[in-house]
């Protein structure tokens, strides 16, 4: 059981329970009426919220083996390289983000229909793979290292930056065929998750110190800017705020 799942339970319903109970309501209602109607005020409980627990950056890897983690770090370091604008995807915590997501609800596509039939489908029909994200990473990372061993006589993580870039470009274009997984599909999920980790709230492991938000000037988890909406072409100098807050929240020690 992952931390994420336990947390969802402590907060009340898990998403699966919620979906299940909604479905039951719909089924129950369909026999007699086409719509649900509520009277009186909706039920309310103190402390009601589904709060996520921030990931612990220093904890052990939750899904990846240490070798897998090193490979993922070697990938995200090249997808988002350190430059004048920001630190690298590795230093921003993207691998930690992906690891924790794979260990949680996302990892086994708990919320998706994952039973057959599985057919190739057209590009417009989107992802039709029977593989869960956990399986895609496990198979993809192993196949990638197999490929590197065969062609470079080294593991991916031990290659230089430019070599890694070249291999990643070949994965993206489909010029490399991995053994156990479609190389384009593998590249796409890693790129997608890396971007998510880079821009997601820091509480999920990536975007450390709100580095990505500072880079693009995104002010973070605030709600209302009516007082600023008319102030065009002006640096409003907002310090970004995470779901967990920011430095100014604390009194000086």
């Amino acid at each position: 059981m992952s931390k994420t799942r336990d947390t969802a339970k402590a907060g009340g319903l898990t998403r699966r329970q919620l979906l299940g109970s909604s479905a039951a309501l719909l089924v129950g209602a369909s026999g007699t009426a086409r719509a649900l109607s509520y009277t009186d005020t909706p039920e309310w409980q103190p402390f009601s919220n589904i709060a996520a627990t921030p990931v612990d950056d220093d904890a052990d890897w939750q899904f990846f083996t240490p070798d897998e983690a090193a490979t993922v770090e070697a990938i995200v370091e090249r997808l988002i390289p350190a430059d004048d604008l920001s630190v690298s995807g590795k230093d921003a915590g993207c691998a930690v983000f992906i690891d924790r997501q794979l260990a949680g609800l996302y990892g086994d596509y708990e919320r998706r229909y994952m039973h057959g039939p599985f057919q190739a489908g057209t590009p417009q029909q989107g992802d039709q793979s029977p593989l869960t994200p956990q399986q895609r990473y496990r198979l993809g990372l192993a196949s990638l290292d197999d490929h590197c061993r065969n062609t470079q006589d080294a593991l991916f993580k031990d290659l230089g930056g430019e070599q890694r870039d070249a291999i990643l470009a070949q994965l993206e274009s489909g010029d490399i065929a991995l053994d156990d997984i479609d190389s384009v599909a593998f590249f796409e999920i890693v790129l997608q998750n890396t971007m998510e980790g880079f821009f997601a709230d820091p509480m999920y492991g990536g975007n450390r110190d709100m580095v990505a938000w500072k880079m693009v000037g995104f002010p973070g988890a605030r709600y209302d800017y009516r007082d600023y909406i008319e102030r065009h072409n002006e640096d409003l100098a907002f310090e970004p705020v995470s779901i967990q807050g920011r430095g100014d929240w604390s009194t000086p020690a």
């Binding site: 907060g11 005020t41 103190p46 807050g245």
Partner: peptide
């Protein structure tokens, strides 16, 4: 602030707006 609150719903004002609980997000100091 900690636990949230739901206002009373009356015949005149049936909306009963609620304050969300912030105890999960804000520390005792906050």
């Amino acid at each position: 602030v900690l636990a949230g609150s739901r206002a009373v719903a009356t015949d005149a004002k049936p909306t009963a707006p609620a304050m969300p609980a912030l105890g999960w997000n804000l520390s005792d100091d906050d």
